[in-house]
Amino acid sequence: MTSGNVILNIKDLNVNYFTLEGVVKAVRGLSFTLRKGESLCIVGESGSGKSTVGLTIIRALPSNAVITSGEVVFNDVDLLSLSEEEMSNKIRGKEISMIFQDPAATFNPLFTIGQTLSDVVRHHLGIKEKDKVREHVQSMLRTVGLPDPERVARSYPHELSGGMLQRAAIAVALSTNPKVLIADEPTTMLDVTLQAQILDLLRKLKEEFNLSMIFITHNLGVAAEVCDKILVMYAGVPFEEGSCEEVLLRPIHPYTKKLLECVPRAHRRVGRLRYIPGMLPDPKNLPRGCPFAPRCERATEPCNERLPKMVEVRSGHRVACHILAPGGEH
């Protein structure tokens, strides 16, 4: 958007989980690019694979997950080909940081916020002088809008409220001056007024640090608030991608359209809600073709046979649907 520089390029990613009950195909054939200073939102309901994408990029998948194919190219390097050592020293938490739904996941409950932050600063930035570390920690806590950074640095995670802890987690994530921030449902556990504060903060920091951001959420409203681009996923499959306005105002995929119709609105009066019949597919037993086909009123033969592929329908607006975006062939 701001520049043409692609910073992250995901190519045909496939991730499976092995469980006792069978293989779960969590992500299937996902490709997207993220440019410098751009924020991309991955939107999906449960089982859409949106969180798996984030964990794949920083290579923090649980032990029963297997990346069966694909590339995650960051600055011309395929992250999937790096050793764990290279990943943890140079990339994870340094070039690419992540914040989570539960901010407590960032912190060890036995250390104060200040200790955690200074560890990160020392390890990744190589700053050794005590005063400089302290200074950097304080300035980070101020940057994320925490009042009284001295006191916060001395606090343990359980002594802070959810909103303050999420701010502190953002401070940890950004303290190494990363190129990419992955935010997985960072406001889902917060009340609306705090959610608005955190979203504002992320927007501000994105400009300030010229961050590229991947924002993972189930909430279309949150997506609209923070993102330049939206990627809609369903049952592990990418369905639609485009600029925020394109996808939300001129959706093409039947799922995106329906999804937008079934969200009640606080800011405008809606008539009776339309809804999507049926339920989300069982991830261990996915339909052979398009995973949305059983709930889609426009589904026909090819929908039940083959997985649709992303096709560019308008400039920058890609859709995977046999009916409304034909031509996608494997």
Partner: peptide, 18 residues
């Protein structure tokens, strides 16, 4: 409280003051 609720419709977003 109302102004804090995120709105999926980008065209309505501009009308709202936070």
């Amino acid at each position: 409280l109302l102004s804090a609720v995120p709105e999926p419709d980008p065209s309505l977003k501009k009308l709202r003051k936070r």
